[in-house]
Amino acid sequence: MPRKLSQITGVLPALVTPFDENEAFDEGRMRTVVDFLIRRKVDGLYVTGSTGEAFMMSPEERKRVLEVVMDEVKGRIPVIAHVGAISTHLSIDLARHAEKVGADALSSVPPFYWGFSQDQIVSYYTDITASTGLPMCVYNVPLAGLFGFDMIKRLAQIKGVEGIKYTASTHHDIMRIKTEIGQDFVLYSGADEMAMSGVAFGADGIIGSFYNTIPEVFIDLFAAAKAGDIEKARALQEVGNAIIFFALARNPIAAIKRSMAWQGADAGYCRKPFGNFYDAASEEKLKAEFRAFKAERGLTGVNFLDAI
């Protein structure tokens, strides 16, 4: 039986998708990455989202990625399958497949590109959510178009919509969502660099890109923030943010994948037009930059930095 969304809390990496040097999905690397993250004690996985390069893949590739992830997870932790697309028809097909292979919940960006009306967006989520028995987590993200608070309240009224992935800087609305929509409406804070404030304002979990490579930082941060130890949470957020902003200037998803490889979980490469570190010289240059950064900031206890 699938879990309720309220049972999926804590730290959930927005899972990377490993591709090989020829941009083909690499099943072996995917299995290694999943096992690596489970051993690192993450609380769940968010699959084929933005970090997973979903919109670089065909629907059949997205299905295969989820199949491999589910087979490797084997029920050890919950999995949220992102099924977002512009077409309701395509999203329903992905949603039904996700249910068939055992995903615990669905998530989706709103349909984008054509500037759909609020009624059309509500219809999109209503149709997808009605197509399966899985709970839906709507996705508030600048890349696809942010929802206003009234729109979030409207989406929360759809049968089966049980939560939201909130990737926006207006964290005052996190508290408002919990107060006006309800404490049982699950909220995931989606901005890595604002994880502490997300949890402090009431988020039930955090979903983010950098939890693939520095999960230890955010697992400790989440626990500290939940315990009310804001001083510790802030110190961990400062470490995380230093790494995030340094990586953002260096092909961030590719940098995440390479830094995972330095820890023994080779996450492969990105699909173009994303940049990559294909050759030994470019990867060594990235390592050297991270070494200098580590020394300059005096960072300790970060696994991938200690590994280089």
Rank of each mutant, 00 (worst) to 15 (best):
D104M: 03
I158P: 08
F149D: 11
V101D: 09
Q157H: 11
I92Q: 00
N140T: 09
Y125N: 04
T167Q: 12
P111S: 11
G145N: 11
S108D: 13
V109L: 08
K100G: 01
L146F: 09
Y124H: 08
T167Y: 03
Q157C: 11
H97Q: 11
G148H: 15
F149T: 06
V109S: 07
Y139D: 01
Q157F: 03
S91K: 07
I92D: 06
A98I: 06
C137R: 00
G145A: 13
T129D: 02
I152R: 04
L90A: 14
L90Q: 07
T132Y: 02
Y125K: 06
H171F: 14
S91R: 03
Y139W: 10
A98N: 13
P135R: 05
G145Y: 05
I174S: 00
G133D: 09
S108P: 00
I92N: 02
K153T: 08
K153Y: 04
T129Q: 06
I174M: 12
P111N: 06
A103R: 04
F112E: 09
H97K: 07
H89L: 12
R96I: 02
D104N: 11
T88Y: 01
H97F: 13
Y139A: 00
R96W: 03
P142H: 08
M151V: 14
L94W: 04
T132W: 03
S131V: 07
V122P: 06
K153I: 10
S169L: 12
G133C: 00
C137V: 01
G148M: 13
T88Q: 05
V122L: 15
Q118I: 13
G133N: 10
K159R: 15
T170A: 15
F149Q: 06
A130H: 04
V109M: 02
I128V: 14
M151R: 10
Y125C: 04
M136F: 14
A95T: 05
S123H: 15
Q120N: 15
P110I: 08
G160I: 05
G145S: 10
S169D: 13
I164Q: 06
P142N: 10
P142E: 14
A103Y: 12
H172G: 15
A95C: 09
T88H: 08
M136C: 10
W114M: 15
I92M: 11
A105P: 04
V161K: 07
I128D: 02
